[in-house]
Amino acid sequence: MSTAATSGAQATLLDPQKKRRKVSPYWITAALFPAILLVWFVVTQLEVLHPILLPGPEAVLTSIPRVLGSETFGIHASRTLIETLAGFALGAAVGFLLGLLLGSSSVLRAAYLPALSALEAVPTVIIAPLIIAWFGFGIEGKAVQAAIACFYAVFITTLSGLSLANANSVSLMQSLGASKLQTLLKLRVPSALPVIFGGLQLGATTAIIGAIVSEFVGADAGLGFLLLRYRSSYDTPAAWVLILCFLVIGVSAYLLISFAEKRIVFWRSTAVSRPDLEKNDH
């Protein structure tokens, strides 16, 4: 009992071998880049494809200042970012609330789950023209498109996450005479959070795709719009720079959500086994 619950660092100290073997996964990720660049370089040197179709890495890298430095880049980039963020916020909120609603009522679930799942099967490209017809070429339509693209991932993970609450915990709440709402808020939602964060990760990616695809279909600004313009002027290196931009946006979204997850679902990321204490059977 004298061993105070200090920190998880203790667990790794007790297992020095594990510490020695551990290589940061980021190094492995970083090692991939030179490899990709090398293959890319070799392929373009051999001129397997015409440089207009596939420019070499040096052409793309030297185009970065030109593309990012252009007068309108800021406008296009912020446009796409706003569309994505607003769409993601809207879609995630709607998905979460619908998940709560259907998760709390088996009748609603039976009535609406098939319809909502069918909606997910409709490709973005098909809805995009309709959305443009309803909302115009501006930000609103793109945000709605991004929301539609991401809501389902958050909705379905919320819905399935709510059923993950430990059966004993449900019995405990029941024995206390907890209302359905209390059980939902105090037990089911926290239990579902790890899964919901998976949905948010997926949703962030699909929101970006939703925004860009709808810019392809018809827009007056945005990175997707810009990409089309570079492509039609056969400025392929610049188009590739924009593809790199999408990558950066995607990775940033992933890192931001991971950061939030570590803070909010702290009991998952910080929970470590304590070999210095007796084993807990679960």
Binding site: A5, W267, T270, R274, N280
Partner: peptide
């Protein structure tokens, strides 16, 4: 402390 810092 949190439960996962405690023994059974």
């Amino acid at each position: 402390s949190y439960p996962w810092q405690l023994s059974g």
